[in-house]
Simulated assay, not measured.
Amino acid sequence: MDTKFFTPNQIDQAAQAIRKGELIAFPTETVYGLGADATNEAAVKKVYLAKGRPSDNPLIVHIDSLERVIPFVDNFSGKMAKLAEHFWPGPLTMVLPVKKGSISASVTGGLSTAGFRMPNNTVTRQLIAKAGVPIVGPSANSSGKPSPTTASHVYHDLNGKIEGILDDGPATVGLESTVIDLSGDIPLILRPGVITKSQIEAVVGKVEYDQHLVKESETPKSPGMKYKHYSPDVEVQMIDAKKENWQEAIRYAKNQNKLIGLIADASILKRFQTQVDATYSLGEEHQMDQAMQHLFAGLRALDEKVPQLDIVYVQTFSEEESGLAYMNRLKKAAAQNFF
Rank of each mutant, 00 (worst) to 15 (best):
F5V: 01
T7K: 08
D12V: 13
A17I: 03
R19H: 02
R19A: 12
R19T: 05
K20C: 03
I24E: 08
T28N: 10
T28R: 00
T30S: 13
T30W: 07
L34Q: 10
D37L: 08
T39Y: 10
T39N: 09
A43C: 04
A43Y: 02
K45V: 09
V47F: 04
A50I: 05
G52I: 08
G52C: 15
R53D: 06
P54V: 10
N57Q: 03
D64R: 09
P71R: 06
P71T: 11
V73M: 03
D74N: 12
F76V: 11
S77T: 13
M80D: 04
H86N: 15
W88T: 09
P89M: 00
L92R: 11
M94T: 07
P97M: 06
S104P: 08
G110D: 06
A114H: 12
T122R: 12
Q126K: 14
A129L: 11
K130M: 06
K130R: 10
G132D: 02
G137H: 01
S139V: 10
P146W: 02
P146R: 13
P148L: 00
P148Q: 00
T149H: 01
T150I: 06
L158P: 01
G160Q: 13
I162R: 10
E163R: 14
G164S: 06
L166T: 01
G174D: 05
G174S: 03
G174A: 04
G174P: 13
L175W: 07
E176P: 09
S177E: 03
V179N: 12
V179E: 07
I180L: 13
L182H: 06
I186P: 00
I189T: 01
P192T: 05
G193T: 08
I195L: 07
T196L: 02
K197E: 07
K197M: 13
V203K: 10
V204R: 09
G205K: 11
K206L: 13
Y209W: 15
H212Y: 12
L213K: 15
K215N: 12
P220D: 09
P220M: 15
P220R: 15
K221C: 08
G224T: 10
K226Y: 14
Y227H: 14
K228D: 12
Y230Q: 09
K242C: 07
N245T: 00
N245Y: 06
A249R: 11
N255D: 13
D265T: 14
S267P: 02
V276I: 07
V276G: 11
T279M: 14
Q287I: 06
Q287S: 11
M288R: 08
M288G: 03
M288A: 05
D289C: 07
A291M: 15
A291D: 02
Q293P: 03
H294D: 04
L295P: 00
G298P: 09
A301T: 15
L302W: 14
L302T: 05
V306R: 14
Q308K: 14
L309C: 05
D310M: 01
I311R: 08
V312F: 11
E320M: 10
A325R: 03
M327F: 01
N328S: 05
K331Y: 03
A333T: 00
A333E: 01
A335D: 14
